[in-house]
Structures are given as C-alpha cells and as structure tokens.
C-alpha cells in the first residue's frame, strides 16, 4: 500500500482541484442586463484585440452575419480611429499571438491605452467583449480587462464560473451595464442591441 501512497495523494489532489473549480460554476447574475434598452453606438465599427488572442477574430466572424459595417484590425493604432464611430475591444492575452506581432506585453498595453484615450477624446462609445470563457482566466488577461473597463460603456461576457462574478463586480464599480450570455453564438443579440 505504501508504494501507491504518492500516486493516490496526487490523484486525490486532482479530484480536489476539479471539485474546487466546479463549485464556483453557478455565478449570481443580479446586476446584468439581457441587452441594452437603447442603442449607444453607431457604424462603422472598429473591432480590435487587447492581448492578441484568437477570440478577437472569432468574435468578428460571429458578428459577421449581423451585417454591420465592421473592420477587424487586431493591431489597430489610435491614429486609425478617425474612420470609426464605435470601438470594440476583445480582451484575451495570448503569448503566441503577441509573439506573431514581435511586440512585448508592455507595448501592447500602451497601444490599448492610447486607443482608449483617443476614443474618449473623440468621443466615441467603447464596448469591451470577453469571450474566452472559463479557460482564459490568467492574470494578464485580467490586466487588460482592468485597464479597459474604466473607459467602457458596455461589457459583454460569457456566463461561466467565478470569472463572470469578478467581471460583474468590476463593471459595477465603474457603473457600466453588463450582459452575460450562455454561449458564444448568443452574443449576437446584445451586440445587436448596442446599435439598433
């Protein structure tokens, strides 16, 4: 029995971790909105990424059949903003994505910061989208969320675990309306409500 002990302890730890994670699956959704009561944005829309994760591109594809006038430019700069009437930031930190741009995470944060500043100045509405789900839960992604939420006018996320509770709290702090959807494809409704 002794020789199995470490194996058994490790397997118990695994099960413990799984149980611990799953306990936080059902979050409260007190302060969320099913969608916006009145539109806040106008076209054309710039969709860009904060963190260079694949979610940006996926989001741009999901919203394609709403037939808005949108551009997905993951590396857009603040100088590109003059053509657009709404800024959509899709958050999600991807070390591999960032590697493709040969930029550091600091430079990426600066780019996002300048975009936010410029949008405020213009001023045009800012919508923050977080669709990475439970798995995209690392500290860097949260840094991007904390950076952009103070400027946001609307937040859309997935209703998954702890994460969304945290997102709600953050949005509440800055008094921004939040919508949480069950799955990726449901995101079209709230996004539509922001424009029509």
């Amino acid at each position: 029995m002794k020789k199995y002990s470490i194996a058994i302890i490790l397997l118990l730890i695994s099960i413990g971790t799984i149980l611990l994670q799953s306990r936080s699956v059902s979050p409260e959704t007190k302060y969320t909105w099913p969608n916006l009561p009145a539109p806040i944005g106008e076209e054309p829309i710039l969709i860009t990424s904060a963190g260079q994760a694949t979610e940006g591109k996926v989001f741009s594809y999901v919203t394609k059949d709403l037939h808005f006038e949108t551009d997905y430019r993951p590396r857009a700069l603040s100088t590109d903003l003059y053509e657009y009437e709404t800024l959509v930031l899709v958050t999600g930190y991807s070390p591999h994505g960032l590697n493709q741009t040969y930029r550091s995470i600091e430079e990426e944060k600066q780019r996002v910061d300048k975009l936010l500043q410029q949008a405020e100045r213009k001023p045009i509405p800012i919508i923050v989208v977080h669709v990475g789900g439970a798995a995209r839960d690392d500290q860097y992604t949260w840094e991007f969320l904390r950076q952009s939420l103070p400027y946001a006018d609307y937040v859309i996320g997935l209703r998954q675990m702890e994460q969304s509770t945290q997102l709600q709290r953050l949005a509440e702090k800055h008094s921004i309306p939040v919508t949480l959807v069950e799955e990726l494809n449901d995101i079209r409704t709230p996004f539509n409500s922001a424009f029509r």
Binding site: I18, Q21, S22, V58, H96, G132, G133, A134, A135
Partner: peptide, 24 residues
Amino acid sequence: LSNFGFGTDDFAVSMKITDEYLTN
C-alpha cells in the same frame, strides 16, 4: 472540462473557442 480547470493554456483556449464557432 474548461470549467474544471483543464485547458487553460493559450493554444487550448484558442482552439476551443474556434471549435465553438465552427461546430458549437
């Protein structure tokens, strides 16, 4: 299994969300 702490690395998240878009 995402809810249980699996597949939190960058590639896994990216592939899972791509799959969600492609095949739900």
